[in-house]
Structures are given as structure tokens and as C-alpha cells.
């Protein structure tokens, strides 16, 4: 599913653009990471693709059709799990399938498969409150995948996790992306994470947010944590870090 942004801009207050002149095409199955200093509007960008925020100018198009609201073909995962705390893990994952009217048997089968994919099969009947932060994010990912989304939108999904858990989750999301062949757009403030996960890294500028750089990550598709130490990885990471830092400084100087 091709995602296109045509001249997209967003103002929450008139005359104060958060994002401006975004032109972007994301091909089906791409893994794109969006980085930028805080205040660059990267979460707003994701929210517009999700259909939860409407652009002030321009259009968001999915296979040529304009996005006018949220829908199950665009799954969303937030930083904090935002699970249904009264529903078991399995019933959290099943929520979208219930909304879509999938019959119970097929629902259970599908949920079972997803829980195995994210490594939570033994926790199917547990309540989210009993899970660790990393496990909760696994549930959130499985829940978003349940509706077989064409685009998976991740809004700083691992931002609240400890370093080791975060690495596990990075490997998991790469694996999931390869298994389900969906487009992934992930917003993060962690440059290393962006370079490690993405095929493409978009660096946003500030005031207003624009695409400052659109970098292709020339690393092999099969990536391991050791790749984070390779010269190619480190060089790319340094390049992106410098860009983000420069934008952050410019933003600080303006406020």
C-alpha cells in the first residue's frame, strides 16, 4: 500500500505551523523511521497518517485515496501501552477482530498465532497489569497486527523501556516486519534505534517541521545487534545525530 503525503501542513494555532510542506512517498513494505528534536512535530505526522488529526493543508493519500479518519488498515502503537486493563492479553489482541466482526473461532486462532509471534503465548489469560513494560508493548504490537494493517504506525514505542528490553523489542519488530510484510513508520527520538531499524530515516527540522533529510540506510536486511558496532552503522548514526543536534540547537536559539 503506497502512502503519499502531498504538501501536508498542520497548524494547531493559526499562524503557528507545526509541520509544513511535507511531500513524501512511502512504498509498500518499507520500514521508515522518523527522527527529530522534540517539537519537530513527528508525532503529529504519525497522528495525521493514522487519521486522528486532520492536516490544515495538503492531503494524506493511501493508494490514492484520501485519509479522512482512523481505520484498521493503519495500526497504531503508542509509547505507553494503552491496553484495555480489564481485558486479558488475548482479549486485548482480539479487540480489533471483534470490531470487524470476525467469528469467534477464527478470532481465537488468529490471536493465538499473534501471541506466539510476539512471544506471549503463556500469558494469554493474564491481565495487562501483571505484565512488564516490554511485555505490554508486545501486546500492543500484537493488537495492532491483529487487524492485518497495511501500515503499522509506531509512536516512540520503546521510549519508556530499559536498554536491554528495548534491544529485544527492536529485534522483535524487525522480525515482525519481515514476517507480516507490512509497511512500518516509526517515530523515535533514539537515533541509534532509527538507523538500526529503518531502511530509510527521515530527519525532521523544527519550527515548522519539514523533512530536512531523507536518508537511505545501506545496511543488510538481516541485522543483528553486533551491526550497531560496524563502521558503516556508526558513520550513518553520527551523520543523523549531527543533523538532529543542529536542529535542536537552532530550535533552542529561537525560543
Amino acid at each position: 500500500m503506497t502512502l503519499r503525503l502531498e504538501g501536508v501542513g498542520k497548524e494547531f494555532e493559526p499562524g503557528v505551523p507545526v509541520l509544513a510542506d511535507l511531500d513524501l512517498t512511502i512504498a509498500p513494505g518499507e520500514f521508515v523511521c522518523v527522527v527529530g528534536a522534540s517539537g519537530s512535530g513527528k508525532s503529529t505526522l504519525l497522528s495525521m497518517v493514522a487519521g486522528l488529526t486532520s492536516p490544515t493543508s495538503g492531503r494524506v493519500l493511501l493508494d490514492g485515496r484520501e485519509v479522512t479518519g482512523p481505520g484498521p488498515e493503519r495500526g497504531l502503537v503508542f509509547q505507553t501501552a494503552s491496553l484495555y486493563p480489564w481485558r486479558s492479553v488475548a482479549r486485548n489482541v482480539a479487540f480489533g477482530l471483534e470490531s470487524l466482526g470476525v467469528p469467534r473461532e477464527r478470532r481465537e486462532e488468529h490471536v493465538g498465532r499473534l501471541l506466539t509471534e510476539v512471544g506471549l503465548a503463556p500469558f494469554a489469560s493474564a491481565l495487562p497489569g501483571r505484565l512488564s513494560g516490554g511485555q505490554q508493548q508486545r501486546v500492543a504490537i500484537a493488537r495492532a497486527l491483529a487487524c492485518s494493517p497495511r501500515v503499522l504506525l509506531l509512536d516512540e514505542p520503546f521510549g519508556a523501556l530499559d536498554v536491554q528490553t528495548k534491544e529485544d523489542m527492536q529485534l522483535l519488530i524487525r522480525q515482525v516486519w519481515q514476517d507480516v510484510a507490512t509497511t512500518v513508520i516509526m517515530v523515535t527520538h533514539d537515533v541509534e534505534e532509527a538507523v538500526f531499524l529503518g531502511q530509510r530515516v527521515l530527519v525532521l527540522s523544527c519550527d515548522p517541521g519539514r523533512i530536512a533529510r531523507d536518508l537511505t540506510v545501506g545496511l543488510p536486511t538481516a541485522r543483528s545487534l553486533e551491526d550497531k558496532r560496524s563502521p558503516a552503522f556508526l558513520a550513518l548514526r553520527a551523520e543523523v545525530e549531527d543533523l538532529v543536534r543542529a536542529e535542536h540547537r537552532a530550535h533552542q536559539a529561537r525560543v
Partner: peptide
Amino acid sequence: VPRRLLEVSATLGAGRVRVASRVVFPY
């Protein structure tokens, strides 16, 4: 009821009535 929870529910295909009865009410 957290705004995020309502937003996520909408992206999972739940309409307003469904969100009210299956998300807001139990929460």
C-alpha cells in the same frame, strides 16, 4: 478515560457506540 485509549480503539475499527460501550463504560 485516557485519550490514547480512545484513539487506539478508533484505529482498531471501533465506532463511537462500540467505543462507548466496550471501552469507556468498562474503564
